[in-house]
Design a protein around this nucleic acid. Structure first.
Length: 477
DNA sequence: ATGTTC
């Protein structure tokens, strides 16, 4: 338990730090007592810094999986009002712009996967580029890059990657409006030109999973899920392009803070007013980064379908949903009885719209938005659904994963990648990765208990549990 | 997260 921060135990699953010093609003953390106790004080410090940024509305929020990040905590949510001097922050979105998860149904049960599991693992590993600096089969020229940055997954579908029906099941229907490719630097584009359709490294992965447990039969049916189904989770982002945009704008925002009259509590919280040239430039570039990530996951989906067509020909991969968890999006929210247009930063946090929201595809609308929670390698993943009450809690946001409990460096000292892979293989979980060091960094023990995180999210009211998945094959960055 | 320290 933090000794340095006065945490008020507001309700069983929420904690509050009242404003003091430069804080304009409270900080609110959704977690159970164990998760709170294990949170680094740095999370509270960073959240209080966020709460002191200009134009912040209501509170700075942390999800149950929150951990220390660059400036903003990962698992942080904060909304800003442009009419009250509100800001946009590159650190509040994160370096991997629009990193996210998509879930595919396969139309087959895990029993049809198990006999060919090894072939499937090997074929996916051969066919889906993975690892640091990995490149793909697509090479974009200037014109192609521009079209991709403007069109996102819609562009990818036009290029023959996937089905037009996929688009309905992607946030923003696969294409983020307001993207300005011209705001993306030459260097960012160059870094990306050969990286479309690649997973990348770190915590990114492609998993084949088994639906192990259904928590809500009605919603699971609406989502087309039943026990023992095989599903595919793809977790990746905007690769070198997003990283380069983040790096550059962070620098510009630090340099311009004085000019904008912003007193930064932490350099890493560099930001610019939404109503400023720099703020608008960043938003245009960031939205292009979102399209890059949406296109990337769409292409990887196509590659996955190609592998399944060879190895599991009876499978039919359909998109359940695609969610981004590193974004800043303009949304209308009811605050103190007034509908306001806010710039909602979610960094390591998933949008979780409740039933009826028009952003949700029609076929899923009555059930609520699918909230996809990727666990750590070798542990379970979860699907939840956005709740009605989530609107009043954290601008319709929920957790995004298990959340790290230990640094990458600590993890490499404690575990050996090869031993982990062998151990998981004994449990029938096949890991394929180009980097054994990467595997050690991603050891399940380096993460929080994802079930505790998901339970806290549900009990806090952020989202509703639908299904739990366990991994069978994992292609790991 | 990241051509893993431009």
């Amino acid at each position: 338990m933090s000794t340095r921060y006065p945490l008020i135990h507001e309700s069983e699953y929420s904690w509050r730090i009242d404003p003091s010093g430069k804080m304009r609003v409270p900080a609110i953390i959704y977690a159970d007592e164990t998760l709170i106790r294990e949170m680094d004080d740095k999370v509270f410090e960073q959240l209080c810094n966020v709460a002191s940024l200009p134009g912040i509305v209501q509170a700075a929020y942390a999800m149950p999986d929150a951990h220390w990040g660059y400036g903003f905590p990962i698992g942080g949510v904060a909304a800003f009002d442009p009419d009250e001097g509100g800001i946009v922050s590159a650190g509040g979105v994160g370096f991997d712009i629009s990193c996210g998860v998509r879930a595919l149904r396969t139309g087959v049960s895990i029993d049809e996967i198990e006999p060919v599991k090894k072939q499937l693992a090997d074929a996916l590993f051969r066919h889906v580029p993975v690892g640091v600096g990995s490149t793909g089969r697509i090479h974009l020229n200037d014109k192609g890059m521009q079209a991709m940055l403007r069109g996102g997954a819609q562009w990818a579908v036009e290029q023959g990657f996937g089905d037009p029906a996929d688009l309905e099941h992607i946030e923003e229907r696969g294409c983020m409006r307001g993207a300005v490719p011209e705001e993306v630097s030459e260097r960012a584009r160059t870094r990306q030109q050969d990286e479309m359709g690649t997973l990348g490294s770190g915590n990114h992965y492609l998993e084949v999973q088994r639906v192990a447990e259904i928590y809500d039969q009605r919603i699971a049916t609406a989502f087309g899920l039943k026990e023992n189904d095989a599903v595919v989770f793809i977790h990746c982002g905007s690769r070198g392009l997003g990283h380069q945009i983040g790096t550059e704008f962070l620098k510009y925002m630090v340099l311009a803070a004085g000019k904008h009259g912003i007193d930064l509590p932490d350099r890493e919280l560099a930001c610019a007013p939404i109503n400023s040239e720099l703020g608008q430039s960043y938003l245009g570039a960031m939205r292009a980064g979102i399209n890059c990530a949406l296109a990337n996951r769409q292409i990887i989906t196509h590659l996955t379908r190609e592998v399944f067509a060879e190895v599991v020909p009876m499978a039919d991969l359909t998109l359940l949903f695609d969610v981004s968890h590193n974004t800043c999006k303009v949304e209308e929210h009811l605050v103190e009885g007034r509908q306001r247009k806010l710039y909602v930063h979610r960094k390591g946090a998933t949008r979780a719209f409740g039933p009826g929201n028009r952003e949700i595809p029609e076929t899923l609308r009555a059930a609520g938005q699918p909230v996809l929670i990727g666990g750590s390698m070798g542990t379970e993943s979860h699907i939840l659904a956005g709740s009605v009450e989530g609107a009043g809690l954290s601008f319709n946001s929920a957790c995004h994963g298990a959340g790290r409990a230990m640094s990458r460096h600590q993890a490499t000292k404690r575990w050996r990648g090869r031993a982990l892979v062998d151990e998981l293989a004994d449990r029938g979980i096949l890991i394929r990765s180009p980097s054994m060091r990467g595997v050690a960094e991603e050891a399940p023990g380096a993460y929080k208990n994802v079930r505790a995180v998901v339970d806290a999210a549900e009990k806090a009211g952020l989202a509703h549990k639908v299904a739990r998945m366990e991994p069978r094959v994992c292609i790991k960055g």
